[in-house]
């Protein structure tokens, strides 16, 4: 190799060293901070963490205030949507009618559907309802078995008392019939 070779080879060697310093996720800091900035960066990071905490606290307080003002406990009525596995039904959207009035429509994104399938529960609707009996109808639209368009409605009569009421609309797989099943569960307020 000529005398030039080692000089030429140096960036390659540098890259080599950098590379083997980065094994998978346990890699150490890969880009050195600009000299003398480490302390500033740490302070800034702490400041950001403090801000996050304070804003989360404030957000909680305002969330509670909003709920108290807009949905007082004695009239509060909330509907959730959940999904159990979801093999026989690919959900597209849900429409909710309360006493024959449309109160909510939601078109689910891929990300939301994944979250539902993993066990997440979507707060679909929060509103106010007077004491007494009410009719709730939920329309589920999507693809059913054999990729066919599927639209199904579920009706339930709910009796609203003076406590907050929570209703869960649950999509589950009826394994025996290879059909989706739409259940409604009224949760007792604690």
């Amino acid at each position: 190799m000529s005398k030039l070779a080692p000089t030429l080879f140096s960036p390659f060697l540098l890259m080599l060293t950098l590379f083997i310093m980065q094994p998978a996720w346990a890699a150490e800091g890969d880009t050195p901070e600009p000299a003398g900035d480490q302390g500033t960066v740490t302070t800034l990071d702490t400041q950001i963490q403090d801000l996050k905490k304070e804003i989360l606290d404030l957000n909680r307080d305002l969330f509670l205030l909003e709920e108290d003002l807009l949905f007082p406990a004695n009239t509060q009525f909330t509907v959730f949507v959940s999904m159990d596995v979801g093999i026989t039904f690919d959900l597209d959207s849900v429409q909710l009618r309360l006493n024959n009035n449309v109160v909510g429509n939601h078109l689910y994104t891929e990300r939301e559907l994944k979250a539902l399938k993993r066990g997440g529960v979507h707060r679909f609707y929060t509103g106010n309802l007077t004491s007494g009996e009410h009719e709730l109808v939920a329309f589920f639209v999507g693809k059913g078995p054999k990729d066919r368009d599927y639209k199904r409605a579920t009706t339930v009569k709910v009796t609203k008392g003076t406590e907050p009421q929570f209703v869960e609309l649950k999509i589950s797989d009826k394994e025996s019939k290879h059909q989706p099943e739409f259940k409604v569960k009224v949760w007792e307020a604690e």
């Binding site: 989360l56 957000n59 959730f80 959940s82 990300r111 939301e112 979250a115 066990g119 997440g120 869960e168």
Partner: peptide
């Protein structure tokens, strides 16, 4: 608990806040 499920719904979408 529905609220736990609601938390997971956001967490799974990386909506940590």
């Amino acid at each position: 608990d529905l609220r736990y499920g609601e938390t997971l719904f956001n967490f799974f979408q990386q909506k940590y806040f």
